[in-house]
Amino acid sequence: MLEIRYVWEWPVRITHWVNVLCMLMLSITGFYIGSPFMTASETSQYIMGWMRLLHFVFAYLFTVSVLSRVAWMFLGNHHASWKAFFPWTTAEGRRNFVKMFRYYTFTGKKISYEVGHNPVAATAYLGIFMLFFFQIVSGFTLYGMYAPGGVWSGLTGWVLTLVGSQWLRLLHHGVMWLLIGFFINHFYSGWLMDVKERNGTMSGIFSGYRYIEPRDL
């Protein structure tokens, strides 16, 4: 008998979609900041000024969203827990990781059927969280340069002793492209699983519900 299970609690869904919005806005404005693709015809315009303002506003929003999600890793259900991002720490997780990897590479026939994330996806999200942290820290380091001795430069000044600001810019920019690559992968995989699992993968991130046949687990 199919069961309707409430898997993705509201903080998971909200932070997910806030992250999507932030990444979209941060990529567009960040790309402009790195390489201005529009030029103003008059000095009274304020294109770069607005781009930077939006970048900083969405950077703060993104930081709040990511930190909220991290907090929920300790408050939410077991699908939201931090433990869910380390699937290969259990024998079952390792087995399902191999099963899923083989499915993706056309060497295995069956999907590893999961209520929450499959182990390959969970591993990818662990990496994505690392990239999020990297973008937040590198971003605020570059932002803090406007006021040496200020709050942000005080918190992030150590970063510039490890890597110069120009290399940090390049890395901040490069990670944006990695996240764009991840977005393509994530969108495709979600779609694929929506078709193959037939359990509401896509609608789950809007509603939180997934349709599970316990017999198949």
């Binding site: 030029t39 009274s44 315009q45 000024g49």
Partner: peptide, 11 residues
């Protein structure tokens, strides 16, 4: 700096 904020750049 005013030109930077406005979005006016020498290419």
């Amino acid at each position: 700096r005013g030109h930077f904020d406005a979005g006016q750049y020498a290419q």
